[in-house]
Design a protein around this nucleic acid. Structure first.
Length: 445
DNA sequence: TCTGGGGTCCTAGGACCC
DNA sequence: TCTGGGGTCCTAGGACCC
């Protein structure tokens, strides 16, 4: 079904329809020690699945989460019924509408908070199997099974137990890929969808990957595939057969990473123990597309000011300081311009970020072309020692104002307080992005 | 009425210091 | 007055992922 042509390899596959014979209780898995075994768990059609748990009438028909068909936006999640008509994630909504039968198809804006709640519950369930859980996104997590004792006869049965436990707790279905490296587990997961399990045993990686097309390999997107095809490379096996030094010569570090992944080996990036990977340059960004492209500098300035406030809110929520501030601007023709600037001192203050944003965006907007998207990114995030934070707070009245604003927003929604030039611009936010209403502009500073 | 939003990782060039 | 090389920081932007 999901992996034709793999019969004969010692790749063992188990699909959801086998579940009936699997143990139903979610007891803790204690598994025999092996060098490293990774289980990649992915929730099937996550957003759609959460919506269907809330509203079972959505089952059995095309469902698209991402926005309403007339809105500017793309498909975030599509049910398999919708995919049968050619819809896929990332497709513009108006195209999805053309492909799917009118009347039968449900378009939903989505409810991010509900997805976050569901995700937290799933991660709790996964955490009951092993403490080494590394969430990659709301709907995906690596489990490191290394060092677990093996009570179950095989990883496949362990996977079935995970599958049942998640379903019992949340009503959601998972697919699972199991392998010795992150990249191979991801390819296995791809073949396991929907609702299945694929395990690639140690030593069988090259045979498993060999005939698969290049773009199945994590890290190979459209551009890289085209570049590799110029060298007449079509399959992951082709790539693995090229000497690593040759790929390094041509593609630099990326070449080394791809070479190692293609041969079923860990690349540097992948080697870290699950749960201990730290981003080297964490960022927080907030961006939005205008409902209509604009050439009004007041609109651009106001929206950036609003986004800067939201980004600072996230920064303070996480107890972080930003070292530099970036502004992004996308023109109507999709060209993108970005500029960054280092702050005099690391800060979480809205005023500091706003000052940088206001210095940056006019320099960024060089072409006489309308703008479709603007964004603010905070770079070089660092956690300050409590003492230093306390000191900052004592001398910094501005911080107290930011906190007070947060409290009001906590109670009344983000739009209850929007500073300065952000007021009055809410109408420029596409309805699908509006997680708030503008209630009490009189509270604004 | 084409093409979201939030991220990570990597590269390359210039500034600056030793 | 001109020369070099290495290291690090900063900035701009590309590719990729979910």
């Amino acid at each position: 079904m999901a992996a034709p042509g793999l019969t004969g390899l010692a790749v063992r596959m188990l699909y959801a329809y086998c579940q009936a014979s699997m143990p139903k209780t979610a007891t803790s898995l204690r598994l025999r020690t092996r060098p490293r075994d990774l289980m990649l768990v992915d929730l099937d059609c996550f957003y759609v699945a959460v919506e269907r748990v809330r509203d079972p009438s959505l089952c059995g028909r095309p469902v698209i989460v991402g926005g309403l068909p007339h809105e500017r936006g793309v498909v975030a999640s599509a049910s398999y019924e919708a995919r049968a008509f050619g819809v896929h994630a990332g497709m513009p909504l108006f195209q999805a509408e053309r492909l799917c039968p009118r009347g039968e198809t449900a378009f939903l804006r989505g409810d991010h908070e509900a997805y976050q709640r569901a995700s937290r519950r799933v991660m709790e369930v996964l955490g009951s199997f092993t403490p080494q859980v590394e969430p990659l996104s709301l709907d995906e997590a690596f489990l490191d099974l290394s060092g677990c004792d093996r009570h179950h006869r095989s990883w496949l049965i362990a996977a079935a137990t995970v599958h049942d436990a998640v379903r019992e707790a949340t009503g959601l279905a998972v697919s699972i890929g199991i392998a010795g490296t992150r990249a191979v587990a991801r390819v296995a997961l791809d073949l396991a969808k929907p609702g299945g399990v694929v395990e690639v045993r140690r030593g069988e990686e090259a045979a498993f990957l060999g005939d698969l097309p290049l773009q199945k390999l994590p890290g190979v997107g459209g551009r890289t595939r085209k570049a590799l095809e110029r060298f007449n490379l079509r399959t992951i096996g082709d790539l693995g057969a090229v000497p690593e030094a040759v790929l390094e010569e041509t593609f630099g570090r990326t070449g080394v990473t791809l070479s190692r992944r293609a041969r079923g080996l860990d690349a540097d990036l992948d080697a870290a123990v699950v749960g201990e990977r730290r981003a080297k340059t964490p960022t927080i960004s907030r961006e939005t597309s205008f409902a209509r492209d604009t050439n009004d500098p007041h609109v651009v300035d106001g929206m950036l000011s609003y986004l800067a406030q939201r980004a600072c809110r996230a920064l303070r929520d996480q107890g972080l300081l930003a070292r530099s501030v970036g502004v992004r601007l996308r023109y109507a023709d999709f060209q993108t311009a970005e500029m960054r600037r280092r702050l005099p001192t690391s800060s979480q203050r809205v005023e500091d970020v706003l000052m940088a944003v206001r210095a940056l965006w006019p320099a960024c907007w060089q072409r006489r072309v309308k703008v479709r998207l603007v964004g603010v990114t905070l770079h070089g995030l660092e956690r300050k020692a409590e003492k230093q934070l306390d000191l900052l707070e004592q001398v910094d009245a501005e911080k107290h104002i930011d906190d007070a604003v947060d409290v009001i927003r906590e109670r009344h929604g983000f739009g209850a307080v929007v500073r300065g030039r952000a007021i009055g611009l809410i109408s420029h936010v596409p309805a699908s992005q509006r997680g708030f209403t503008l209630r009490t502009p009189s509270c604004s500073k």
